[in-house]
């Protein structure tokens, strides 16, 4: 009995903190559907009836999908290269971890310096005479996706790398020594084994790009909003909290629709892979 009490006391501080978060979550959803104690869905009806909101949701999903795609395309080979690197791997890890821990404000600002009208790219183009006036490289979808890929790529690399480091190189070599073509070995051995890492990386990058505010605002401007920047405007400029709550709920639902199935798949795969592996 004393032990149960002690366990409860030990769990209390973290339970209070996470409890406050979960209560806030319930209240957020409640505040978006309740008006004077009555269920009232007019914020959602408003959102669905406004073509600009529908376009914004479409833009959010497209940007998140593109960002996730490019992060996977660049992240997987990088993780593979680092995992199989023979020399001092810590230096390579440093090149991933250090940028990852620098504030996203600083990293997004770096892209403003690179892509801006007086920035690196335009400076180079005008110096070489390839352009006679600055090109518009930011305040468009290109700038936003570029910035988001850069900011979120470390999450993808770390997720895949942590799985790849556990897969023995011998498995790949065994497959190849048995006559498997490198790509065949990759497809039949390495890819299925690294799938949990891919799923974790895709989940994180998708989640963080749908809910991003700082990067889209700095590199995309206030014109073509995404759902995160729209929420930011509703709160900071129009003080319309119920509308922001409804938009945040829409964001939660869109994120969860993708994240939860991926998480279950990842759990199931990890369990199957560890159960099947001789330890």
């Amino acid at each position: 009995m004393a032990r149960t009490l002690r366990s409860a006391l030990l769990l209390a501080p973290s339970a209070v903190l996470i409890g406050i978060f979960l209560i806030g979550l319930v209240r957020l959803i409640a505040s978006s559907v309740l008006f004077d104690g009555q269920i009232d869905l007019h914020h959602y009806v408003d959102i669905m009836n406004r073509p600009d909101y529908i376009a914004m949701l479409g833009r959010t999903l497209r940007t998140a999908a593109l960002t996730t795609f490019f992060c996977l395309l660049l992240g997987y080979p990088t993780a593979y290269y680092v995992a199989r690197y023979q020399g001092n791997r810590n230096i390579l890890l440093l090149l991933i971890i250090f940028p990852w821990l620098v504030s996203i404000v600083v990293r997004s600002y770096g892209w403003v310096v690179i892509l801006g009208p007086r920035g690196l790219v335009n400076g180079f183009l005008m110096w070489t005479g390839m352009a006679d006036r600055p090109l518009k490289l930011m305040y468009n979808d290109f700038g936003v996706v570029m910035g988001l890929v850069h900011v979120l790529l470390p999450f993808m690399i770390i997720a895949i790398l942590s799985v790849l480091m556990q897969i023995s190189r011998n498995l790949e070599e065994a497959s190849m020594s048995l006559g498997g073509h490198p790509f065949y070995s990759f497809r039949t051995v390495l890819l299925p084994l690294s799938l949990p890492g891919i799923l974790t990386g895709v989940t994180l990058v998708y989640l963080m790009s749908t809910g991003a505010i700082v990067t889209p605002l700095l590199l995309g401007g206030l014109g073509d909003t995404m759902i995160g920047t729209e929420i930011f405007q509703e709160v900071m400029h129009f003080f319309d909290y119920p509308k922001a709550a409804a938009l945040a709920t829409v964001l939660l639902v869109t994120a969860m629709a993708v994240v939860l199935p991926l998480q279950f798949l990842e759990r199931w795969l990890s369990k199957r892979l560890t159960d099947g592996a001789p330890s």
């Binding site: 806030g24 989640l207 809910g211 709160v235 964001l251």
Partner: peptide
Amino acid sequence: LAPLIFPHAAIGVIMIVT
């Protein structure tokens, strides 16, 4: 680990409410 699987913009509004 729950706070990890929510989009940041939504967490922002949850925290305003709280």
